[in-house]
Simulated assay, not measured.
Amino acid sequence: MSEILVLYYSLHGAVKEMAQLVARGVEQVPGATARIRTVPKVSTVCEAVEDGIPDSGAPYVELKDLEECVGLALGSPTRFGNMAAPMKYFWDGTTPLWLKGALVGKPAALFTSTASMHGGQETTLVSMMLPLLHHGMLIAGLPYSNPELAATSAGGTPYGASHVAGTDGNKPFTEEERKLCIALGKRVAETALKLVK
């Protein structure tokens, strides 16, 4: 089986739910399986502040997870139009992989959640693309052949899947948002398997 790494950071649970939907899409592709991982919180002095193993949920990512996967789905909540600090902190530590070109040619897809409709979804997705492009990864967005992309009145962009969580973080996912998360997982898995061949 070829593994797609579904790597996310989630504070209130919306991005975690998106990661599970993306993983469901990955698992719909014969020959692909999802490896779900997260990153720990960081302190204001930018160091990991949680134990080495989380109490519950997905394990923390290790560099070998990126090396071993054939594709990546990366998710973070929006922080002023950018990825959250814990995710940025993790990517800042991936220089050893960059030095040996470990991610060159692997496809990557992105997902995010914001409190408001115009809370920086697209700029967050683009901010997450930047380190991936430096690593030589190939970005797989969501084409408009997904009818939900044109029909959505909430989240969903051609840059990746997104969700409008509301100011309390508890706004339910729309049907379009769910379908686009699953479609994103399928797309990155199908692309990865084609490239592996």
Rank of each mutant, 00 (worst) to 15 (best):
E3A: 04
Y8R: 07
S10K: 01
L11C: 00
H12G: 00
A19W: 06
A19Q: 06
E27D: 09
Q28D: 11
Q28M: 13
P30Y: 14
A32F: 04
A34N: 11
R35T: 11
I36R: 05
V45H: 13
E47V: 07
A48K: 10
G52E: 15
P54R: 09
P54Y: 13
S56P: 08
V61E: 07
K64N: 06
E67A: 10
A73C: 12
G75V: 05
G75R: 10
S76P: 01
A84N: 02
P86G: 00
Y89Q: 13
W91G: 12
D92T: 01
P96D: 12
L99I: 06
K100W: 01
G101P: 00
L103M: 15
L103H: 12
P107V: 09
F111V: 11
T112M: 00
T114S: 12
G120L: 06
Q121N: 08
T124G: 03
T124I: 01
V126K: 02
S127R: 04
L132V: 09
M137R: 01
M137A: 15
I139E: 08
S145E: 15
N146T: 12
A150V: 06
S153M: 09
G156F: 13
G156E: 07
T157A: 11
A161I: 07
V164H: 05
T167S: 03
K179V: 10
L180P: 11
K186P: 02
V188K: 08
T191K: 05
A192I: 05
V196G: 03
K197G: 14
